[in-house]
Design a protein around this nucleic acid. Structure first.
Lengths: 282, 282
DNA sequence: AAGAATAGTTATGCTCCGTAACGCTCGTGA
DNA sequence: TCACGAGCGTTACGGAGCATAACTATTCTT
């Protein structure tokens, strides 16, 4: 009779939890079936957990889309999922952790979207790939303005990014897509010298640091090409950013499309990419 | 005994306010000294009120700077000012109204900062002015990243922009600075044809709409120049935006400076601005 | 000096974040 | 097969912020 129900001790409630360390909470994969065989298939429970996490993230995104902000309320997410808010803390220790994961996901999504677009075209179609990458970037931003804002806006109000955390790395992974476009182009030999060839020593030194090592197609870019790559990124991002945030609203949509194409063409041309003179691309 | 608890009738406190219309609250300038003489000097009270409003805004900005977000709490502002939070509602009907004013102020600040920089150089120094405007834009963003985010980020979480409200207009005013740079250049006759001269009909039509009428130096730009102006804005904004939000952190500061200058030079050159060949500007 | 408009206060309600305590339900292992 | 414990969910609660209501103090006008 001393103990007649699960949990702790007989009803006499609150006995401050003994030194047992606080919570083995998050990100633990406790209780793996046996112990050996690291690469074991995930437990049934683990799969359920992963599915729930995914559902939470999708619900969060859906709510952000609906409300048009990067704000999100645990209570809303929970209600949408038919749960109560505190339950979410089983999966994310707080709002920031969820946000961080969403940001990482956004980078990945952008990265793969752009990569897919790039790889749909033959490797030697430099201008085609340039345009495809740019358009994929733009379309993604138009399709998912909130995710775009997550990545490229100031941190959400209360949010503080984990120092040197996963977001930084995710960012580089996404950027890599653009850089590899230039790497391939440079390697192909079809690339002319860019319009601006003067490169400051500091910028040149910067190229050296930039070792994503390993990948063969990714040896250091020529200095002026690296610079041109950054220019292109700025132009591309600037256009997309202004458009996404509504600062081009005074320009009618078709004109925006044309303007975008011409901006991309300018960036590519200035970077030394060949551009077909017939109207094939614009 | 039928009713003996507060809120309804017992205690008979609350007597729902008689039809007196709700609140003559904000933005009223009630009780002007006499009535005639519209252009009267502001009342002592009016001045005090204006000063308080200004102090609130400055405090808000300061807090945003300190916390590094665009978030702001009425309670913090009030505490900082040695007041209680509800007092602020005498001056702003809610958080959004304060935010809106801050956004408008930010546009104005950016606009005048850029304008000042532009006018420091002689009218015929086209490339100098181009660089000065660009640098002013960049420096402002670096100096006031939160205000930059207010203008160019997605609306702050809970915030919904007033439809077609004051912010839209303020945005145009700031943009005007860049456009007039191109107008003057076009008028001066020193401007070469831009690098990209193909202009889609939709874009061309767009130029026509763009009548800031009145100002003589602002007659419609040549179509391709208008297009180049938009390109320049995109490049400038893209660079500044990426840098401000930390996406260039992997580039050391001096390299960033050089990269910026070269990007501006690219934009200017592509737009047809003359650029000195000696190292004067870069 | 009286009286109204203004500027502040405290008190209160609501919503949301996050934690604490508790219970239900499975899957595992004796 | 059955007990136990991990994991997942719940209700209850405390704290912070927005916003309003009701009240008080001050200040300007007449």
């Amino acid at each position: 009779m001393i103990n007649d129900y699960p949990g702790v001790s007989g009803r006499r409630t609150i006995e401050p939890p003994p030194p047992e360390e606080l919570s083995p909470r998050l990100n633990t994969t406790p209780h793996a079936p046996k112990d050996a065989d690291q690469a074991e298939r995930p437990t049934r429970r683990e799969r359920a957990r992963a599915a729930t996490i995914e559902e939470i993230k999708q619900t969060a995104l859906q709510l952000m889309r609906e409300h048009g902000t990067t704000d999100l309320r645990f209570s809303d997410i929970a209600r949408e999922m038919g749960m109560t808010a505190p339950a979410l803390y089983r999966y994310f220790s707080d709002r920031d952790e969820l946000l961080t994961e969403l940001i990482v996901d956004a980078y990945d999504d952008l990265g793969t979207t752009v990569a897919d677009a790039r790889e749909k075209l033959p490797r030697d179609d430099l201008s085609g790939r340039f345009l495809a990458v740019s358009q994929a970037y733009r379309e993604w931003a138009k399709r998912e303005p909130q995710q775009f804002a997550l990545i490229f806006g100031l941190p959400v109000p209360g949010y503080v990014a984990p120092e040197e955390g996963p977001t930084t790395e995710a960012a580089r992974r996404a950027m890599w897509q653009l850089k590899s476009l230039f790497s391939e182009a440079a390697a192909s030999g079809q690339l002319r010298r860019p319009l601006i060839q003067d490169v400051d020593d500091a910028v040149a030194a910067c190229v050296m640091f930039d070792e994503d090592a390993g990948d063969p197609s990714l040896r250091p870019l020529p200095e002026d090409t690296f610079q041109a790559c950054m220019h292109s990124w700025a132009t591309l991002h600037g256009f997309v950013s202004l458009e996404t945030y509504g600062h081009f609203d005074f320009v009618p949509p078709e004109a925006r499309d044309a303007l975008f194409t011409s901006a991309v063409r300018l960036a590519a041309t200035a970077a030394g990419f060949p551009w077909p003179t017939d109207g094939a691309l614009s």
